[in-house]
Design a protein around this nucleic acid. Structure first.
Length: 254
DNA sequence: GGTTACGGT
């Protein structure tokens, strides 16, 4: 009998896999997220700031910094004991997407969520490979990569179009929304694919072009601006007389 | 088929 693949192993425990937005304290979860930065190690533990590009009311609002997204979207993760050793062995660094198993969600003294992977001392159930670094094309990272792309799309949105995604309720009002343009944009996450749609009473193509001057963009004969940016894939958005966006070809850029 | 948790800021 063949050995189960990593993916099959992951699916066996998928019932436990939650986004930060779905978490409540004092429960145990598996978690897929991106390392924003490492925040220090001691003799038997390390802490790191992570995000899965979802938000939770029980997290502090933070501005964007490095790979840390803006919003109530970053959570402190502590790895203890043998998990700390695994962390060192795997040479985990900022930008890595990790699959973490059996994290305990708890609140700190300020009532802020934290995640903790406690050492296994004969208590609970030992996990198989509780810390894994996911490669850029790992199917288990699809949802996180899609939400990251959605987030980066929203960051580019400087023409008063508010992107109201399911996962960003707390940053919606900080996205540069301008009531004068009376614009709305919606992002729907269907599985691992994002569908964008938007409409506006007044487009502002020049501003958009300026904002994206460091990106590649071109104007087609139908007066549509197409701009490409790269995250985990290459995405394009199209603007016409009424703003329309769509996710473009996803070619791996690195 | 689905239990279980401390330690530190």
């Amino acid at each position: 009998m063949r050995t189960l693949t990593d993916y099959e192993m992951a699916m066996r425990t998928a019932w436990k896999l939650k986004t930060v937005s779905q978490m409540v304290p004092d429960k145990f979860y598996d978690f897929i997220g991106e390392v924003c930065y490492l925040s220090g190690s001691e003799s038997n533990r390390t802490t790191m700031m992570m995000t899965d590009y979802t938000e939770n009311e029980m997290l502090p609002y933070l501005e964007s910094k490095g790979v840390r997204p803006q919003g109530k979207a970053t959570i402190l993760v502590t790895l203890w004991d043998e998990h700390f050793e695994t962390f060192l062995k795997l040479k985990i660094k900022a930008g890595d997407v990790l699959y973490l198993k059996n994290l305990r969600c708890k609140v700190d003294l300020s009532n802020v969520f934290q995640l903790s992977m406690n050492g296994f001392n004969g208590r609970g159930f030992a996990q198989i490979d509780p810390i894994q670094i996911l490669l850029p094309d790992d199917p288990r990272g699809k949802e996180v990569r899609a939400r990251k792309a959605e987030y980066e799309m929203r960051q580019l949105d400087t023409e008063g179009v508010a992107l109201s995604g399911v996962y960003w309720p707390h940053t919606e009002q900080k996205s540069g929304y301008s009531s004068s343009t009376n614009s709305t944009m919606n992002a729907v996450n269907s599985g691992s694919d994002l569908k964008f749609s938007a409409n506006t009473t007044r487009g502002n193509r020049n501003k958009f072009s300026q904002a994206c001057s460091s990106k590649t963009h071109r104007t087609s004969s139908d007066n549509t601006v197409r701009t490409s940016l790269s995250s985990s894939g290459t995405w394009s958005r199209s603007y016409g007389s009424s703003i329309r966006t769509s996710d473009g070809p996803r070619t791996k850029s690195h």
